[in-house]
């Protein structure tokens, strides 16, 4: 919003400078002030009005091509306010110029007599041409609306083509490989779901968004289903990022070694405390028997949480699945 306004002010300045320059030159050439002041006022007014139409036109184009329809009303509102103010200024200047010109030539009384016929002619023109002009305006609006609809349809078609149709094609080609088919279908479902159900626009990075992204990666890489349920949300700072990394590692472990087809992820934020649970119903393992060099669990999950002031607990036993519980208390800064 800021730039157009500043540009407008600059333009006004330039117009003013031009006007003053023209005045000086005219005075040097010896034109009488009686002609000069009205003429220059009218010129500046006209310049403002003409530039104005240009602005309005551009704003409309921008509106027609803009996808962010929700932001639009506000935007046009601001533009319109500026438009009205400038239109009035331009109109006043032009009228003042015309009146001044007539007065300087002593023609004002004659003009007053001519005003009635002119008025009658204008009314006549409006009556005759009015319906036609209105109709044209309406048609233009309708056409613009149709164009916007067409654009939306095209984008929708492109989206469906990119995700669903492509996936269906790939599925037909990979019909003999169930894991691949599942992976393709899940990926496509996720993408379409994200497009349909999550609010438009790039929100700030949050715990929820980061977890969903991590789950999507794991689904793609390992061909399992990862169901993510979240309650509450927080912006993703460094510590939250660490929790997401640890959760991701837990998902990868579950996908790779549990043998379970689905992994459940639950994240809850209560009063700044972040808890994430990653659970599978797979074969589980004997925690005590994990060799010390198994980097995944010890370093990527337990140590990472500890470094960030949190804890990780792993509950598992052979045959009864695995649950990784991550707990991150509120930051020290928040505590009194």
């Amino acid at each position: 919003m800021r730039r157009p306004r500043r540009a407008g002010a600059a333009q006004l300045l330039v117009l003013g400078a031009l006007g003053v320059g023209a005045l000086l030159i005219a005075q040097l050439l010896g034109f009488g002030a009686g002609l000069l002041w009205p003429a220059s006022a009218a010129t500046v007014g006209a310049a403002i009005l003409w530039r104005q139409a240009d602005d309005a036109q551009r704003a409309r184009w921008r509106a027609a091509t803009s996808r962010a329809t929700t932001r639009l009303p506000q935007f046009t509102h601001i533009v319109t306010r500026g438009l009205v103010a400038r239109s009035v200024l331009g109109l006043l200047l032009v009228t003042a110029g015309m009146t001044g010109f007539l007065a300087a030539h002593g023609a004002l009384t004659q003009a007053r007599r001519a005003l009635l016929p002119i008025f009658v002619v204008i009314v006549g023109l409006v009556v005759i041409a009015g319906p036609w002009v209105l109709e044209t305006v309406r048609e233009l609006t309708e056409e613009r609306r149709a164009r916007i609809r067409e654009q939306e349809r095209a984008e929708f078609a492109a989206r469906v083509h990119d995700s669903v149709l492509q996936t269906l094609t790939l599925i037909q080609r990979n019909a003999s490989d169930p894991i691949e088919v599942l992976r393709l279908a899940r990926g496509s479902e996720r993408e379409l779901r994200g497009w349909l159900y999550t609010p438009r626009g790039d929100g700030p990075a949050t715990l929820q968004a980061a977890l969903l992204a991590a789950a999507a990666d794991v689904e793609d890489e390992h061909g399992v289903q990862v169901d993510v349920v979240t309650v509450g949300d927080v912006p993703a700072d460094e510590r939250v990022g660490a929790v997401v990394q640890a959760a991701r590692e837990a998902m990868v472990n579950a996908a790779k070694s549990s043998g379970a087809p689905t992994v459940s992820v639950f994240a809850e934020v209560t009063d700044g405390r972040v808890q994430v649970f990653v659970r599978d119903r797979g074969r589980g393992f004997d925690l005590a028997a994990v060799p010390a060099d198994r980097y995944g669990v010890r370093e990527s999950i337990v140590a990472r949480m500890a470094r960030n002031g949190g804890t990780a607990e792993i509950r598992t036993a052979p045959g009864s699945g695995t649950e990784v519980r991550l707990d991150l208390p509120p930051t020290a800064a928040v505590r009194p």
Binding site: D227, V229, T230, V231, G232, S264, F266, E268
Partner: peptide
């Protein structure tokens, strides 16, 4: 379902 449980926890949060 887990998701419905999440919704409800959110609703009564």
């Amino acid at each position: 379902s887990p998701r419905l449980a999440g919704f409800v926890l959110d609703a009564f949060a």
